[in-house]
């Protein structure tokens, strides 16, 4: 499979349908790279003409802004908007809810106006339209799955149903944690916590959240965010359940069922 960059499309005078915004985690984090690849496979299978920015992509500035470094955020946003507007990009799909939120809600004030979709919403659309079909009796048949709402997709942008609809398309049992949807509990990574040690407390947030997920008896914890993925995987490891319980991104699950 070949993944073309925006620059390559532009060189041929072509315009892709969508920009796949990979994000820093999707680009560099080894675990998240698997999600990136799974999602490109799906895009490929669905016959969607997509591009990445490749080396021209930069951090959206989310962790800087939420840590309080507005200046750095504005710098990153300025550069990204220059690049994206330069290519005349209209539609962006991202596998990271933090990138999604910032494009959707925070770039417009700075002159970056795009139609933005989080990959789970996009996957739901592909399944509903019949563009992609999941195998009957697929790999997840009969397995118990629980879904972790990321803060920036859930509370941040009120997207609760689309990812669940994708999960319901598998032939399995979806069980909710006690804290879910608008009352869902954070994995502990947001607000730039991902990049620093937690403040002193009685427990780690990701251990607490992983415990809540394990309580459901699910063998798969479905996530939609590369940072939640890291936090929950560590949490599951801490409970020594990494052999029996997997943390998977919804895109990976779809890719496995094609």
């Amino acid at each position: 499979m070949s993944v073309k960059s925006m620059a390559e499309y532009a060189a041929n005078g072509e315009n892709p349908e969508v920009l796949f915004w990979v994000g820093c985690a999707g680009s560099f984090d080894q675990r998240a790279q698997k999600v990136t690849k799974a999602f490109t496979q799906i895009l490929d299978k669905a016959g969607i003409k997509f591009a990445i920015l490749g080396k021209e992509e930069m951090c959206t500035g989310d962790p800087a802004r939420r840590a309080g470094n507005e200046f750095m955020f504005q710098m990153m946003a300025y550069n990204n908007i220059q690049t994206m507007n330069g290519y005349g990009i209209k539609k962006v799909i991202t596998i990271c809810p933090h990138c999604y939120n910032i494009f959707k809600n925070e770039y417009p004030a700075l002159g970056g106006n795009y139609e933005v979709m989080h990959h789970t919403t996009f996957l739901q659309q592909l399944i509903n339209e019949g563009t992609i079909k999941l195998k009957d009796g697929g790999v997840f048949k009969g397995q118990k799955i629980t879904y972790h709402d990321s803060c920036y997709l859930g509370r941040g942008n009120a997207i609760y149903d689309a990812p669940r609809e994708v999960l319901e398309a598998f032939d399995n049992e979806l069980v909710e944690m006690k804290r879910c949807k608008s009352n869902g509990m954070c994995c502990g990574a947001g607000g730039a916590q991902m990049f620093k040690e937690e403040e002193p407390g009685t427990n780690r947030i990701n251990f607490e959240r992983a415990g809540q997920a394990l309580e459901t008896g699910a063998t798969i914890i479905a996530s939609n965010c590369p940072f939640c993925m890291t936090m929950l995987s560590d949490g599951v490891k801490n409970k020594e359940k990494e052999d029996s319980v997997k943390v998977l991104d919804i895109a990976e699950m779809v890719a496995m069922s094609l």
């Binding site: 820093c24 560099f28 990445i52 080396k55």
Partner: peptide, 23 residues
Amino acid sequence: MFGNIENNMAPWKFSPDDRDAWV
């Protein structure tokens, strides 16, 4: 993290040239 974003365009210390290495 701020330093990494400024120099590597990502919050981690990876080379910006490797951003599309996953491909």
